[in-house]
Design a protein around this nucleic acid. Sequence first.
DNA 1: GCCAACGTTGGC
DNA 2: GCCAACGTTGGC
Length: 156
Amino acid sequence: MPNYWLFKSEPDCYSIDDLKRDKSTFWDGVRNYQARNLLRDSIKVGDGVLFYHSSCDPMAIVGIADVTKGGSPDRTAFDPKSDHPDPKSNPDNPTWYGVEIHFRDKFKKAVLREDIKGEKRLAKMVLLQRGSRLSVQPVTADEWRAVLQIAGIKGN
DNA sequence: GCCAACGTTGGC
DNA sequence: GCCAACGTTGGC
Protein backbone atom coordinates (compact mmCIF):
# COMPACT_ATOMS: atom_id res chain seq x y z
CA MET A 1 0.00 0.00 0.00
CA PRO A 2 1.43 3.32 -1.01
CA ASN A 3 1.36 6.30 1.27
CA TYR A 4 0.40 9.76 0.18
CA TRP A 5 2.05 13.15 0.61
CA LEU A 6 1.67 16.78 -0.30
CA PHE A 7 4.67 18.77 -1.49
CA LYS A 8 4.49 22.55 -1.46
CA SER A 9 6.27 24.63 -4.02
CA GLU A 10 6.13 28.26 -4.98
CA PRO A 11 5.44 28.17 -8.72
CA ASP A 12 7.94 30.97 -9.33
CA CYS A 13 10.52 28.64 -7.88
CA TYR A 14 9.39 25.29 -9.32
CA SER A 15 5.95 24.69 -10.82
CA ILE A 16 3.96 21.70 -12.04
CA ASP A 17 4.84 22.82 -15.58
CA ASP A 18 8.52 22.63 -14.69
CA LEU A 19 7.97 19.08 -13.45
CA LYS A 20 5.99 18.19 -16.56
CA ARG A 21 8.88 19.45 -18.67
CA ASP A 22 11.57 17.73 -16.57
CA LYS A 23 9.55 14.48 -16.13
CA SER A 24 11.62 13.73 -13.02
CA THR A 25 13.23 15.85 -10.39
CA PHE A 26 15.07 15.47 -7.12
CA TRP A 27 13.12 17.28 -4.41
CA ASP A 28 15.94 19.17 -2.74
CA GLY A 29 16.32 22.23 -0.59
CA VAL A 30 14.09 21.16 2.29
CA ARG A 31 15.68 22.57 5.43
CA ASN A 32 13.26 21.62 8.15
CA TYR A 33 13.84 18.65 10.43
CA GLN A 34 10.28 17.37 10.52
CA ALA A 35 10.07 17.40 6.73
CA ARG A 36 13.57 15.92 6.54
CA ASN A 37 12.48 12.99 8.69
CA LEU A 38 9.60 12.26 6.32
CA LEU A 39 11.85 12.50 3.26
CA ARG A 40 14.51 10.30 4.81
CA ASP A 41 12.46 7.71 6.63
CA SER A 42 8.88 7.56 5.45
CA ILE A 43 8.50 8.48 1.79
CA LYS A 44 8.97 5.39 -0.35
CA VAL A 45 9.08 4.41 -4.00
CA GLY A 46 5.54 4.14 -5.32
CA ASP A 47 4.05 6.69 -2.93
CA GLY A 48 1.78 9.39 -4.34
CA VAL A 49 2.48 13.12 -4.17
CA LEU A 50 -0.01 15.96 -4.43
CA PHE A 51 1.77 18.92 -5.99
CA TYR A 52 0.68 22.18 -4.34
CA HIS A 53 1.38 25.73 -5.47
CA SER A 54 1.89 27.99 -2.45
CA SER A 55 2.25 31.74 -1.98
CA CYS A 56 0.64 32.54 -5.28
CA ASP A 57 -2.73 33.26 -6.85
CA PRO A 58 -4.56 30.98 -6.85
CA MET A 59 -3.09 28.61 -4.31
CA ALA A 60 -4.04 25.10 -5.36
CA ILE A 61 -3.22 21.44 -5.71
CA VAL A 62 -2.28 21.39 -9.37
CA GLY A 63 -1.26 17.83 -10.13
CA ILE A 64 0.24 14.56 -8.96
CA ALA A 65 3.59 12.83 -9.03
CA ASP A 66 5.02 9.45 -8.08
CA VAL A 67 7.98 8.83 -5.84
CA THR A 68 10.63 7.03 -7.92
CA LYS A 69 13.47 7.03 -5.40
CA GLY A 70 13.30 7.08 -1.62
CA GLY A 71 15.29 9.25 0.75
CA SER A 72 18.83 10.05 -0.26
CA PRO A 73 21.23 12.81 0.78
CA ASP A 74 20.50 16.30 -0.52
CA ARG A 75 23.81 17.14 -2.13
CA THR A 76 22.84 20.77 -2.73
CA ALA A 77 23.56 21.26 0.98
CA PHE A 78 27.26 20.61 0.28
CA ASP A 79 27.47 23.00 -2.65
CA PRO A 80 28.27 26.57 -1.61
CA LYS A 81 26.98 27.74 -4.98
CA SER A 82 23.57 26.10 -4.66
CA ASP A 83 20.45 28.01 -3.69
CA HIS A 84 20.44 26.53 -0.21
CA PRO A 85 23.87 25.48 0.99
CA ASP A 86 24.34 24.28 4.56
CA PRO A 87 27.99 24.24 5.61
CA LYS A 88 27.03 22.25 8.71
CA SER A 89 25.87 19.28 6.63
CA ASN A 90 28.65 16.76 6.16
CA PRO A 91 28.76 14.31 3.21
CA ASP A 92 29.77 11.55 5.63
CA ASN A 93 26.75 12.20 7.80
CA PRO A 94 24.29 14.28 5.78
CA THR A 95 21.82 16.48 7.59
CA TRP A 96 19.38 16.92 4.71
CA TYR A 97 17.58 14.47 2.47
CA GLY A 98 15.36 14.49 -0.57
CA VAL A 99 13.44 12.08 -2.78
CA GLU A 100 13.03 11.76 -6.54
CA ILE A 101 9.59 12.29 -7.98
CA HIS A 102 8.21 11.69 -11.45
CA PHE A 103 5.45 13.68 -13.14
CA ARG A 104 2.16 11.81 -13.41
CA ASP A 105 -0.55 14.33 -14.15
CA LYS A 106 -1.38 18.01 -14.28
CA PHE A 107 -5.00 18.56 -13.31
CA LYS A 108 -7.16 20.08 -16.02
CA LYS A 109 -8.83 21.97 -13.22
CA ALA A 110 -6.66 22.72 -10.21
CA VAL A 111 -8.14 22.00 -6.80
CA LEU A 112 -8.11 25.46 -5.26
CA ARG A 113 -7.29 26.09 -1.64
CA GLU A 114 -10.63 27.88 -1.47
CA ASP A 115 -12.38 24.70 -2.62
CA ILE A 116 -10.42 22.53 -0.21
CA LYS A 117 -11.62 24.72 2.64
CA GLY A 118 -15.22 24.14 1.62
CA GLU A 119 -14.88 20.38 1.28
CA LYS A 120 -15.84 18.30 4.31
CA ARG A 121 -13.62 15.35 3.38
CA LEU A 122 -10.59 17.64 3.25
CA ALA A 123 -11.27 19.70 6.36
CA LYS A 124 -8.59 17.90 8.38
CA MET A 125 -5.79 18.18 5.84
CA VAL A 126 -2.50 19.25 7.42
CA LEU A 127 -2.44 21.95 4.75
CA LEU A 128 -5.38 23.74 6.34
CA GLN A 129 -4.28 23.44 9.93
CA ARG A 130 -3.63 26.68 11.69
CA GLY A 131 -0.01 27.72 11.53
CA SER A 132 0.88 24.69 9.42
CA ARG A 133 3.90 25.40 7.31
CA LEU A 134 5.39 21.97 6.73
CA SER A 135 6.50 21.88 3.11
CA VAL A 136 6.28 18.09 2.98
CA GLN A 137 3.24 16.70 4.72
CA PRO A 138 1.24 13.49 5.02
CA VAL A 139 -2.08 13.01 3.24
CA THR A 140 -4.54 10.24 4.11
CA ALA A 141 -5.76 7.78 1.49
CA ASP A 142 -9.25 9.25 1.86
CA GLU A 143 -7.96 12.77 1.28
CA TRP A 144 -6.00 11.56 -1.75
CA ARG A 145 -9.08 9.96 -3.26
CA ALA A 146 -11.20 13.01 -2.56
CA VAL A 147 -8.71 15.37 -4.21
CA LEU A 148 -8.45 13.17 -7.29
CA GLN A 149 -12.19 12.86 -7.49
CA ILE A 150 -12.63 16.63 -7.29
CA ALA A 151 -9.95 17.04 -9.94
CA GLY A 152 -11.88 14.65 -12.17
CA ILE A 153 -9.23 11.93 -12.24
CA LYS A 154 -10.61 8.42 -12.55
CA GLY A 155 -9.32 5.06 -11.46
CA ASN A 156 -7.47 5.99 -8.31
C1' DG B 1 17.61 22.74 29.75
C1' DC B 2 15.09 27.05 29.84
C1' DC B 3 13.47 30.80 27.33
C1' DA B 4 13.87 35.39 25.07
C1' DA B 5 15.19 37.16 20.81
C1' DC B 6 15.39 36.62 16.27
C1' DG B 7 14.49 34.85 11.51
C1' DT B 8 11.34 32.52 8.35
C1' DT B 9 7.14 30.88 6.44
C1' DG B 10 3.08 31.56 4.15
C1' DG B 11 -1.89 32.77 4.23
C1' DC B 12 -4.39 36.80 4.13
C1' DG C 1 2.88 44.44 3.14
C1' DC C 2 1.25 42.56 7.50
C1' DC C 3 1.62 39.54 11.06
C1' DA C 4 0.69 35.07 13.57
C1' DA C 5 2.77 30.88 14.15
C1' DC C 6 6.56 28.34 14.18
C1' DG C 7 11.63 26.92 14.27
C1' DT C 8 16.30 28.02 15.62
C1' DT C 9 19.86 30.16 18.22
C1' DG C 10 22.49 31.33 22.06
C1' DG C 11 23.14 33.31 26.74
C1' DC C 12 22.49 31.96 31.21
